[in-house]
């Protein structure tokens, strides 16, 4: 962790406070400032020592919730829903469109670090299934053209 990131993490904890109930908001914020959208072990350790919580308890929270990643991802995380509704409406077609457009498979990241692709449980967009989510925005009823337009807006 470089000095810049260290200071960023300390600043986040200062603004959120050190109470136990601030842990999840703190972890959200430290993941968001990481260009690879993950929480490295050394960041978890810094959060633990600064907030006065044991490392194992911080790790327990990081590993429990789907939002947090312990592995490097990319600047933009694309999630393809693979729960029941998106499966019966053929989510694989959307996954194939994305894989072709980005030149990667689900579970991988693009070399430039702009996108990564993962499957996700339902995020409540079943009315536009099959749906995807880029960071916190939801998109559905996609075709190749629409998808390219959306991806382009994140490349800038």
């Amino acid at each position: 962790m470089d000095e810049l990131m260290r200071r960023e993490v300390l600043k986040i904890i200062e603004s959120q406070g050190k109470a136990r109930e601030a842990l999840i908001p703190v972890l959200k914020a430290v993941q968001r400032v990481n260009p690879k959208q993950y929480i490295p072990q050394e960041v978890s350790q810094l959060v633990a020592s600064t907030m006065g919580i044991s490392e194992s308890e911080v790790y327990e929270v990081v590993s429990f919730y789907a939002e947090f990643s312990e592995k490097p991802r990319a600047r933009n995380v694309i999630r393809i829903c693979d729960s029941t509704v998106c499966r019966v409406t053929h989510h694989r077609k959307t996954a194939e469109l994305l894989e072709a457009a980005l030149g990667i498979r689900v579970g991988e990241a693009t070399e430039d670090g702009v996108f990564c692709l993962e499957y996700s449980p339902c995020f409540g967009a079943c009315d536009v299934a099959p749906a995807i989510r880029i960071n916190d925005r939801v998109y559905g009823n996609l075709d190749g053209e629409k998808l390219e337009e959306i991806l382009q807006s994140y490349r800038r």
Partner: peptide, 8 residues
């Protein structure tokens, strides 16, 4: 926390 798949 509407997490039930199929519910929105």
């Amino acid at each position: 926390d509407e997490g039930e798949p199929g519910t929105f």
